[in-house]
Design a protein around this nucleic acid. Structure first.
Length: 314
DNA sequence: GAGGCGTGGAC
DNA sequence: TGTCCAAGCCT
């Protein structure tokens, strides 16, 4: 476990934040979170010892903006069909899109397929353990690279997902929600809290995530069950409510919904689909045309002669 | 940096 | 009912 010196040491950039951390986070608090995790963590398949790095990577991509409950069956089916990167690389991209089903954000399926090809071509069919190499893969950003390096390879990386950001925002800053984007101070904070031993750091990361997912939730946090309740700035301040978000994203009637409707028709069909079939799925011509162009541009749909459309390579 | 990008469950 | 939200990434 990391000594507190590093956390307490003042810096020129974030003196106030580091002073707060020093007074809040102790060695004992780390252990409290780790103990809580040992007692309360969910038994998720991608956390089991037999989960391969590929399985972990697949789970992390599926979990991007998609709840665990919906990922579980998709994860099982995907890995049964494609247990290795080489297996997926041997199927056409369209099959990945079809297998993705209704998980949402289907470009993730395309990127997973592209990743499989890259792993076969450049990494001997293996998921690289190197954070920078993970980050180079399509659809793998800062969070996912750190998550795979930590959870599949036991490395020491700050894993900043929405759960961790919320926990730290409440614990340290005393605000109900984290800001819209990861700040430099946030990244430094997460790094400063990381235990020194890589294996412990990896377990700490997944433990804080789990705490955010099960206890320090966005709505109705269960503060009475929280192992950090005694030192939580937000709880101490009386759980002040954040200002309501303005400009909530609409969905009904948007290009996004139209894309989803069109792709659903093409995905469920056994062969190519005709233009009129798509017209039935979305009558409004301007939006339908724009959405279809977008799907083709993204590589999710392949256009053929005679106004026919299919999944790519299928 | 703001906005686009799916889907469905919870309230 | 509509709004919020769910292990983000990319442009």
């Amino acid at each position: 476990m990391q000594s507190l010196r590093r956390v307490i040491l003042p810096t020129r950039r974030q003196p106030a934040i580091h002073a707060t951390i020093g007074s809040v986070m102790t060695h004992r608090h780390h252990e409290r979170v780790l103990s809580w995790y040992s007692a309360h963590s969910r038994d998720l398949p991608w956390r089991r010892p037999d989960a391969s790095p590929w399985a972990v990577l697949v789970s992390e991509v599926m979990l991007q903006q998609t709840p665990v409950a919906r990922v579980l069956p998709a994860y099982q089916a995907w890995l049964e069909r494609w247990p290795t990167p080489a297996a997926l690389a041997g199927s056409p991209a369209g099959e990945a899109v079809r297998q993705w089903g209704r998980l949402g954000y289907p470009r993730r399926a395309l990127r997973l397929h592209a990743i499989a090809g890259i792993l076969v071509q450049r990494h001997g069919g293996q998921v690289p353990a190197c954070h920078a190499e993970l980050l180079d893969l399509p659809g793998i950003g800062s969070y996912t690279a750190a998550a795979v390096a930590s959870f599949a390879f036991g490395q020491r990386h700050a894993v900043l997902d929405t759960n961790v950001r919320r926990v730290l925002a409440r614990l340290i800053s005393g605000t109900q929600v984290a800001g819209p984007a990861v700040s430099v101070a946030e990244a430094r904070l997460a790094e400063s809290l990381l235990p020194a031993d890589p294996a412990v750091a990896a377990r700490w990361s997944v433990a804080v995530m789990e705490l955010g997912a099960l206890v320090c939730t966005a709505a109705r946090p269960r503060c009475t069950e929280c192992p950090l309740a005694a030192e939580c700035s937000w709880l101490r301040a009386g759980r002040p409510q954040a200002a309501p978000r303005r400009g909530g994203q609409r969905y009904t009637g948007t290009d996004r919904q139209c894309r989803g409707a069109l792709l659903a028709v093409i995905r469920e069909a056994h062969g190519p689909v005709s233009g009129p079939q798509l017209t039935a799925a979305w009558p409004e011509p301007a939006r339908r045309s724009r959405a279809l162009d977008g799907l083709v541009a993204d590589g999710l749909v392949e256009a053929h002669a005679d106004d026919m459309f299919s999944l790519p390579g299928v």
